[in-house]
């Protein structure tokens, strides 16, 4: 049957869709899966810079759709991971240059050659979102533990239902365990309870993420990064492996607290 098409979406902007797409692409390729990531945010191309591939773009998604190049010509091969390809978004066009049918057509052509096709959806719930979701076998909804992001995630669930898609799975990004512990941030349990969705990953807030974007090397390649580990775990779950959710409060056990208390900290 070939590749599984996974769309990364969120409703709200700035919650980490592009970071998630880049990291899952790299993590899946590292697991030996043939993967292509598609930037569906026409007009606001960004997946290329986050992945460090911005200088190698010749053709883009709209060029493929409008027949200016063959699909293969728009696919940029990652130097470090030859199993990983990027199809960049057009920079000078808008979302109406691509239709949901175009996206289905393109992914259908790729399915036989790949294990995973990951689509980075634009923010919002209009045409760009519908383009990104149209070919999806599975939708991953990225949210942050914050009222506006959670509310938008719920809207996405409603829209997926309207499009007769599966309900989607949740990635809770930028969680701060210390704030959760103080009761000043929604916990993963809270968000799951509110949205009634299956959760596929919890990614902690991590200072390694921005430097990774700065240098175009996805954070999942940084072995010291908790966020990197979290993205790797999500990739493993996508391949069907059973990986327990990360324990983000490793020092919350009774004995650790006891040690801390008598350790005088």
């Amino acid at each position: 049957m070939g590749a599984k098409v996974i769309t990364i979406t969120s409703g709200k902007g700035g919650v980490g869709k592009t970071t998630t797409t880049a990291n899952l692409g790299v993590a899946l390729a590292r697991l030996g899966k043939k993967t292509v990531v598609i930037d569906a945010d026409i007009g606001l191309r960004n997946l290329d810079v986050v992945m460090g591939l911005e200088n190698r773009i010749v053709y883009d998604l709209v060029d493929v759709v409008e027949g200016r190049c063959r699909l293969r010509q728009a696919m940029i091969k990652h130097k470090q991971f030859p199993d990983l390809y990027l199809i960049p978004a057009a920079q000078t066009r808008d979302k109406t240059s691509v239709s949901p049918a175009d996206m289905i057509h393109i992914t259908d052509k790729l399915r036989s050659d790949f294990d995973f096709i990951i689509i980075d959806s634009p923010a919002g719930i209009e045409r760009g979102f519908r383009n990104a979701v149209a070919p999806a076998d599975e939708v991953l909804i990225v949210t942050n533990p914050e009222v506006s992001a959670v509310r938008d995630a719920d809207r996405i669930v409603g829209l997926l239902e309207a499009e007769h898609k599966n309900p989607g799975k949740l990635i809770l990004n930028r969680l701060k365990p210390a704030m959760v512990k103080k009761g000043e941030m929604l916990s993963a349990d809270d968000v799951v309870d509110i949205l009634a969705l299956e959760i596929i990953g919890i990614v902690p807030e991590d200072d390694h993420v921005i430097p990774a974007s700065n240098s175009g090397i996805p954070v999942t390649l940084n072995e010291n990064s908790h966020a990197g580990v979290a993205f790797r775990n999500i990739a493993r779950r996508l391949t069907g492996e059973d990986v327990a959710l990360m324990d983000l409060e490793t020092n919350s056990g009774f004995f650790q607290r006891l040690a801390k208390f008598f350790g005088g900290r």
């Binding site: 914050e146 009222v147 509310r151 103080k182 009761g183 000043e184 509110i194 009774f254 607290r257 006891l258």
Partner: peptide, 24 residues
């Protein structure tokens, strides 16, 4: 502290959860 309880007030996350549940 030893039992890991939060001795202060419940915190804003409870409010966030209640508000979200209602609006959603």
């Amino acid at each position: 502290r030893m039992l890991g309880r939060n001795s202060s007030n419940k915190g804003s996350s409870t409010t966030a959860k209640d508000r979200l549940k209602f609006v959603l």
